[in-house]
Computed example of a mutant assay.
Amino acid sequence: MDELLERARTWVEQHAGSQARHLLRAEEWLRQIYPAASEAMRLAALTHDMERAFPGPDSPRQDPARGPDDPVYLQAHAGRSARLVGDFLRAQQAPASLIEEVMALIQAHEVGGWPEADWIQAADSLSFLEVNVDPFLKMIGGRQGHWTPAAVRAKFTWMYERIRPPVARSLAAPLYRQALEKLRQREEDLPLSGEQA
């Protein structure tokens, strides 16, 4: 178990770029909120967004105008990550049953739906609220103009409100409040005319 997880951590560190910290922290959050997490759960938490590390013509693109819970994007993102992680695990000669379970958990990491998937989703949200708030704030007013303050607020709220396990929701609450306060401060820094940089 530990050897495969270590190889997966190395893969994440070497390929995930700016997303590596989010993925590593997701696994750490999972171990904190659910110490009994299985190997499959830990692997899924660690690798759930790996499709973003390997951009290609089939990479899904999120349009904030469709909301943070856009099912078309979420399904494409989760499915592509599951396939890439499945390929990685097969290359590591992981057991087929483990690969199948990890892929199913990654496929469900945005929406949850059963206890193990809900824990992965919660760990993802906790890590997002801890690690990804500042990068989203920096996207406000960017060249593409898609990430408005309202879209970022919707993303933060969705990441918090989708958490089902009470212990995880309790841990996420202060992170969510801090994210909203940072957003409020960022909005104060925006030009009054509404012009975007």
Rank of each mutant, 00 (worst) to 15 (best):
P55F: 09
Y34V: 05
D118I: 07
R169S: 11
A76K: 04
L175E: 01
A82F: 03
S193T: 15
M103E: 15
R184T: 11
E181Q: 14
R162P: 05
S59W: 12
Q62I: 04
Q14D: 05
I140Y: 06
H22W: 00
K182P: 06
G194R: 06
G141D: 12
W114D: 10
A108L: 13
E100I: 01
S97T: 13
R153M: 14
P68N: 06
A104D: 13
Q75R: 15
F128K: 07
E188T: 11
R90F: 07
G56H: 10
L24V: 11
P68T: 02
P174I: 13
V152Q: 05
A65Q: 09
P166S: 13
E187S: 10
F136Y: 15
E3P: 03
A16D: 12
H146Y: 10
G145A: 06
V133C: 12
G194N: 08
E39C: 09
A45G: 07
H48I: 01
G145V: 09
E110V: 04
T148E: 04
S38N: 06
P149Y: 02
M159D: 02
L175G: 02
Q62F: 04
A172M: 03
G194T: 05
V85I: 03
T157L: 12
E27P: 03
M50Y: 08
L175T: 05
S125E: 08
Q178N: 14
W11M: 14
S170L: 15
R61F: 11
M1H: 15
L5E: 13
A123G: 01
M50H: 02
S125I: 05
L46E: 07
M41H: 01
N132T: 09
Y176I: 07
T157I: 02
Q107N: 07
S18Q: 03
A36F: 05
S18Y: 08
E27Y: 00
A45M: 08
R66N: 14
D70L: 10
S59D: 10
K182N: 04
W29C: 08
S97W: 06
S193M: 00
W29H: 11
L84M: 14
R177V: 11
I140C: 05
Q62H: 14
A8D: 07
M103P: 04
L43M: 03
D70R: 04
W147A: 08
D49V: 05
F54Q: 01
G113C: 11
A179P: 05
A20W: 03
Y176L: 09
